[in-house]
Structure formats: structure tokens, C-alpha cells
Nucleic acid binder design. Structure first.
Lengths: 362, 362
DNA sequence: CTGTTAGCGCGTTCAT
DNA sequence: ATGAACGCGCTAACAG
């Protein structure tokens, strides 16, 4: 069948150990011997058996990357940046590893299943991306899985979700988290400063850290402007929150629902840019102009956001940089940040989709 | 360190062979024994060692997916659909495999490197997605690598590129290819029927099958309308072809170049939707309206294309379906198409970005 | 510098 | 139905 180390050794007239040494270049080997071995390797088209090597050396060439869905640009960009770091130097010996991308679809069960599969493979590292599901049970389950992985030497990095709770902080888990709360707050402040008071909010799925943090930022901004939950205007704002998925359809449906709840609203903040596009489509279908009648804002600043028209006001997350950083961390190519947690700043991007409300202008 | 089969065996008071049989469920085992073993497995939190299993059983849980870049929605959607099939049933024993996504960045060397890495891992299957680089040397190199992989039992699927040349057709390689030529032809016919005659073409990178096929379709449509390369109008069209990357910047730059070459052009066809957005941006920056002054068309029908404004006329490729099909093929869950080649039809999507040229209307 | 030996953890014969 | 023994292909001690 396949040619093995022994075949190469026989061909080169040396022991298999010597061949191994030449291949890994960790031990001194005489130049002439090395050359003979390399010739034999080339002649036989020998390719090492990764699993045998992994078994013997107790190492792995695999790094798991858990994402909700690579088809979603948010995760696609993260995955791409991660893969870039993980696979970097794949040509050199020991240079790069293989990124195993796992689509969880946002399902907690799938997340656990994949963690088990990666544990099976004795993955060298695991990166969990995107918001985490907030449930006692699931958090505990993930934590214990991660603890076992970490105990067996697997490097763990969280990217785009908050660090694990303090009690579990003993885990050697590194985190690259996004300032979702701050970004959301600045975004809503922007709308408030434009004069908007009836602001709809299309939130993401419930029980997700990302959803909660963005919503908290939004409400914090409202409260700071005297629109706390205990005021009349605040009560309206509370009523103007609709939860949905992180997809375009959800945005479309949510926008219609918001208009039903308050035909007078002047602005809509969406959970992310994709949802915002759905919101825009719904508003247009209702004959409303953006931002003339209603301002719309998104989150993430995905590539298409600048090309939408009007261009979307949104909050930029440097996804590629964050992913690359997480990649370096999981590869051990960069020292962990102090406390194990790095917070990536977010930036308000004001574009054409937001403007003062019509009433305030006339 | 990690708990092994032997540990479980000891705990259950049976031999390791019995534990193995319980785990794989391929052999008859007494109910009571089975139960004791399963209890021991649960109590010890045992997780099989994938590499050891792979080594012993000569099987692999890995399937490689080569893409140019997962951050590109075209590949992101393909990868997502592929992963969905590959990982399907990951919970059941033998149910799913792990998709190893490899970003080649369109580099032939990276492609070969990853194929070697996947061969190392004795991957159960490999899917090559997207257009192939057209070069004698590279094609030969890839073919021989694929031949070796196939010989060692790895299932090979091509998705989004043409089948390998007839001489290599003996390889058990399955192909899911896109009708790029037909789609491009219908797209240009659409523009011609609107009355356009000076049509710029922003082609993809040279020496790529996708680039060539789309360009051929474009030229075929022109020729069919009497605008062959030997006519005056045809000569103009030839001059109005610019090559660039598959990214937005390339589209932007190419559009400016096209306007320089012919300020009178009335339509621009782009290599894909992303490029088309760049073209649109450049035209707008030049003060030209779409489609009033210049019509623009793309290719692929990525999700954002319908939300651009004007919405992009483009050619739809059912990427998710194609990816899922390729995934089933590589998993051996679907019978290979006759001749090993399935051609996926493309569909012209006429939207707002194309209209009759201004001159013909007045 | 190189060969010999002993596992890595599991699947799988062959016995029983 | 179960156990003992061997080997998958390679790396890592240990000699020499």
C-alpha cells in the first residue's frame, strides 16, 4: 500500500530512526546520510503518516475552530484570519497546523459534540468564536469540556465572547473579546444626539452574550439621556425591542413588527449589519425612505455595509485583526495578554443611513 | 495522563478488546457486559484517541476542503454547505467527519502544500473548490497528487472547477462544475438585447478556469450578435477587457481604466459580484448613475447583491446546493453522477442595475 | 553520529 | 461471548 518509514530506511540503507531524524531535523545527522535519505524519500514519494507521528509523539497537527456558520461573513472573516495564522508556514516542518472549522449553527449541543470530536483528535488548540449561549447548564458543560482539553495540553482561546466566569478562571483559557457594550452605547448616543427619541431595537437571539451586551449598551445610552426604563419614553423604548435571529429575514420581520408597535419611530438599531439590511428592505417596502423617514444602524461593519445605499452607519469590529490575534494565541506565537483577556475596541462608523429625524428638521 | 482503553477495561473488569467492541458496536457483546463497560466509560469520562484508532483501523475522520479564502462569501457559502454534509450526524458513531478548511489564497503552491498535509493525515476525502489555475505544470502536479490520494482510498471531489483533462480521467475523481460559460453568455445577451454595444468587461485573474469560461461566454454572445473579434465593434470589445483580482478594489480600479479607454461605454460586466460593487463605486465617484449612464452586471448572486442599490443584475449559482452535493459525494452518501461529472445550471437574475443605454432611449 | 528497542492507544485476528 | 497477542507507523530513549 502506502510507503512507510521502513521502506525509505531500507532504500537508503539506514535504520528507520535515522530517517525519522532526517525528516524532523531535530537530531544531528551526517550530511551524506541525510542526502541519501532525502533521495530515497523523493524517489519513493514518501509522505509521513500524520496519525502515527501524532500517536508516537503525542502531538497533533489539528486546531479546532468553532463558528456558528462560515457562510456568515462575520464568522467567515474570523475563520479566514484564524486559518491564516494557524496554517502559516505549513511548508516548513512544524510550521503550520490544520484548521478544523466546525459549524455549530449556534447550537449548544453541536458545540459540545465538536468539542468532544476535537478532544478525540487530541487537538493542539481550540478556538471558540462568536457569542456564547448563556445558560447555566451549557456554560458548565462547556467549562468542564474545556478544562479537560486544557488539562491534556490543548490551548484554548475564546474569540468574540466574554471570558469564562471567575470561578473557572483557573483554566488556562485566553480570551479576545469585543467591546460590544461600548460600541452599542456609542451608536445609540449617536442617534440620540441626532435628536432621535423613538428608537426601535432589533436584538439578536435571546440568551446570547453578544445580544445581551449590545442591548445593555443601547439601554445604557438611553438611561444616560434620561430615558431610563422608569420614564415614559423609556417604557416606549422597552416596548420597541424585538428579538430575532442574526439573519436578514429576522431583520425584515422585526422591522415590520416595530412599525406595527410604533408607526412613529424614527430610528432602528439592528443586532448586526445583516439584520440591518433586512430592516432597510422592510422599510423601503413600506415606502419609507432611509434616513429621511427612518434612520437605520447596524453592527460589525461587514464589507458590504459600506456599499449598501445609503451606506450603513454601524460599529466596526476589527474582525480580521482579532481573528489573527486569536490565531497567534492558540498557536503559542504570542504571549497571552495580561489576565488572559484582551478587549478589542469597537469604533462607531457614521455613514449615510442615519440622520436627524424629520420632525426635528422642520 | 489521559484515560485509555485499558483504564476503562480495568475499571469494568474486562479486556480492552471487549471495550473496543462495545465502543464500535460491530461485534456481539453480552448485554450485561456492555452495560458495565458503558458505565465505566461514563465514570471515567473516556474519550477515544482518534489518532490511535485511525492508525489501527487505517481510517480517518478528516475531510479536507480547499478554498481560496473563506472570508469571500462565494467560498464561505460553499464551505458552509460542504461542512454541513461532512459533519452531519457527528453525534452518532461513524456519523460525521471533521472538515479541514484550507485557505489557499489562490496560490498553486499552497494548494499543493495542503494536499500533502491532507495526505499526511490520510484524509478520508478532499474537495477542491473554485476555479483552477491553468498551467501545465500545476495541473500535472495536482493530478499526480490526486492520483496518489485516490490510490490510498481518499475520495476526491472537484467543486466549481472543470473536470480533470481526459487523459487523467481514469482517476476516480468526481466533479460538480458550474455552467459559467452559459451564464456569462446569457448575461451578455441580456445586455445586447437591451441595446448595449460598448460593453466593458472586468475579468478575473488570468489563467483561471473560471475567468476563462466566463470570458468565453461573454465573447460568444458578442460573436453571436455579429460583434466578433474581426469586426470593428468587436475590436473595441476586445480592448474593453481588463483583468484583475476577484476583489472590490480590482473592480474599482478596472472601472476607472475602462472609462479611460472608452468614456462612451454604456455597460460593464464584472467577473463577480464583489468586483461589480467596486465597479459601481468607481462609476458613482465619477458622477455616473447606474443604470442611467452605465449598466453594471455581476456574477454569482451572493447574498448582498440583492441589497445593493440598485440591486445587481447577475448570474445566480446555487452555491449552497452545489456545496451540499459535493459534500454528499465526498462522504459517499450519494452515487456519483454519470461520467463522474455533474454540471450545475446557472440562472440570469435581471435586477435594477441594468437598463437600456441612454442613447437608445432618447 | 547511528542502530536497537520499546512503546504510543487502539483494532483485530486467533483462540477459547 | 470474551481474552491474549500482534501490529498499525512512527518517535524517543538508550546504547554504542
Amino acid at each position: 500500500m502506502a510507503v512507510t518509514l521502513a521502506d525509505v530506511a531500507a532504500r537508503a540503507g539506514v535504520s528507520s530512526a535515522t530517517v525519522s531524524r532526517v525528516l524532523n531535523g531535530n537530531y544531528p545527522v551526517a550530511g551524506s546520510t541525510r542526502e541519501r535519505v532525502q533521495r530515497a524519500v523523493a524517489e519513493l514519494d514518501y509522505v509521513v503518516n500524520g496519525q502515527a507521528r501524532a500517536l508516537a509523539a503525542a502531538t497533533s497537527d489539528l486546531v479546532g475552530v468553532l463558528v456558528n456558520d462560515v457562510a456568515d461573513p462575520f464568522f467567515g472573516i474570523l475563520a479566514s484570519a484564524l486559518q491564516g495564522e494557524i496554517g502559516a508556514g505549513a511548508a516548513e516542518p512544524g510550521g503550520g497546523k490544520l484548521a478544523v472549522v466546525c459549524n455549530t449553527g449556534g447550537s449548544p449541543e453541536a458545540e459540545l459534540t465538536y468539542l468532544t470530536l476535537l478532544e478525540r483528535q487530541r487537538a493542539a488548540g481550540v478556538v471558540l468564536t462568536g457569542g456564547a449561549v448563556e445558560s447555566e447548564r451549557h456554560t458548565a458543560a462547556v467549562s468542564s469540556r474545556l478544562a479537560r482539553l486544557a488539562a491534556s495540553g490543548t490551548r484554548i482561546v475564546l474569540c468574540g465572547r466574554p471570558p469564562l466566569a471567575p470561578p473557572d478562571e483557573t483554566l488556562p483559557v485566553m480570551t479576545v473579546t469585543f467591546d460590544n457594550r461600548g460600541g452599542a452605547r456609542r451608536l445609540t448616543e449617536h442617534l440620540l444626539s441626532l435628536g432621535h427619541r423613538r428608537i426601535g431595537y432589533v436584538a439578536g437571539p435571546v440568551d446570547r452574550t453578544t445580544t445581551r451586551h449590545r442591548l445593555e449598551g443601547h439601554r445604557a445610552a438611553l438611561a444616560a439621556h434620561g430615558i431610563g426604563p422608569d420614564t415614559d419614553a423609556g417604557a416606549i423604548s422597552l416596548r420597541l425591542t424585538v428579538h430575532g435571529g442574526y439573519d436578514r429575514e429576522s431583520g425584515y420581520d422585526a422591522a415590520l413588527e416595530l412599525l406595527r408597535r410604533d408607526p412613529e419611530l424614527t430610528a432602528v438599531v439592528a443586532a448586526n449589519d445583516t439584520v440591518a439590511l433586512g430592516v432597510c428592505a422592510a422599510l423601503r417596502d413600506r415606502g419609507l425612505s432611509i434616513p429621511g423617514d427612518v434612520s437605520v444602524a447596524g453592527f460589525d461593519d461587514l464589507p458590504f455595509s459600506g456599499d449598501a445605499s445609503p451606506a450603513l452607519t454601524t460599529v466596526r469590529i476589527p474582525l480580521a485583526e482579532a481573528g489573527a490575534r486569536a490565531g497567534r494565541l492558540v498557536m503559542g506565537r504570542q504571549a497571552p495578554p495580561p489576565g488572559g483577556v484582551a478587549t478589542v475596541a469597537t469604533e462607531l462608523m457614521v455613514r449615510g443611513s442615519t440622520a436627524p429625524p424629520a420632525s426635528s428638521g422642520s
